[in-house]
């Protein structure tokens, strides 16, 4: 029998009852849950406004029990800027995939970071455009086959993957910028701690915060969920190393209790 003393896992308050539309084995659901847990733990649900992207997470607003807007493709950081500038005491976050953030929305993300917009960005890097059927993304690995790189990404003609966390960390407006992975429980716990720190950064007005999360796309990768997790660990992490790329001094002083 589940009693308050034996209850160790439940749906976070920041979630609605909506059933998921994400594919089996996709780590979007894990990322959503981590955000929901953090918002609940920090008691921010009623103060938070989310900005959904265009991509698989276009329906993110169905899952979070917070106010939400839905941005044009890539423009979430600009929309978040508009919201935060008129409602500076609210918590504003964007949730964006790699096509959204690192391709069509490159201008918006770089300048939001450069301005030090006091917003939080959760960046899902799954190395392809999931929603439109698995085309090549700016983050697609060299040699990786996608529907628009059917012979494998040829760096001679299709260029190299973009490491967003490293790039954005060079900007002075950034308070916190890290990369984590969602491929196993240990890394999921580390990812949650990073998401918590990112929202703490915003809460304390310490500047732009971004957590890049290496994620799976079993459907478009043509893998089982387990194979996809292994792909993240063995193939993606060498190209996208996990790490803290910018932790401003004020952010480094924040202590977050493990939950």
């Amino acid at each position: 029998m589940v009693t308050p003393t034996t209850l160790v896992y439940s749906r976070p308050q920041a979630f609605t009852d909506s059933p998921t539309h994400y594919c089996p084995g996709c780590t979007h659901g894990v990322a959503h849950r981590l955000i929901a847990e953090v918002l609940e733990e920090m008691n921010l649900i009623s103060r938070t406004i989310g900005v959904a992207p265009v991509g698989c997470a276009v329906f993110a607003y169905n899952y979070f029990d917070t106010d939400f807007v839905e941005a044009p493709h890539g423009r979430a950081p600009a929309m978040a800027t508009g919201i935060k500038r008129v409602l500076p005491d609210r918590i504003v976050f964007t949730y964006q995939g790699d096509g959204d953030l690192a391709s069509i929305g490159m201008g918006e993300i770089v300048h939001a970071a450069a301005r030090g917009e006091n917003i939080t960005v959760i960046f899902i890097n799954n190395a392809n455009y999931g929603m439109t059927g698995g085309q090549m993304a700016p983050t697609t690995l060299p040699g990786m086959k996608t529907t628009s790189s059917p012979y494998g990404r040829d760096v001679e003609t299709q260029g190299y993957p973009i490491r967003m966390a490293e790039m954005l960390a060079t900007l002075d407006g950034v308070g916190y910028c890290v990369r984590r992975s969602l491929h196993d429980p240990k890394n999921i716990r580390l990812a949650k701690k990073a998401i918590r720190l990112a929202f703490e950064t915003q809460l304390r007005g310490l500047g732009f915060s971004l957590v890049e999360l290496l994620s799976t796309c079993p459907t478009n990768w043509g893998m089982s969920p387990v194979e996809a997790l292994r792909f993240v660990e063995e193939r993606m992490i060498p190209v996208f190393p996990l790490g803290d790329y910018k932790v401003a001094p004020g952010v480094a002083q924040i202590t977050v209790r493990n939950t």
């Binding site: 900005v51 807007v69 941005a71 423009r75 600009a78 929309m79 800027t81 508009g82 201008g107």
Partner: peptide, 11 residues
């Protein structure tokens, strides 16, 4: 593009 989407957010 940035400007109109900031307008969109604030609106």
């Amino acid at each position: 593009l940035g400007a109109i989407n900031m307008v969109y957010g604030a609106a």
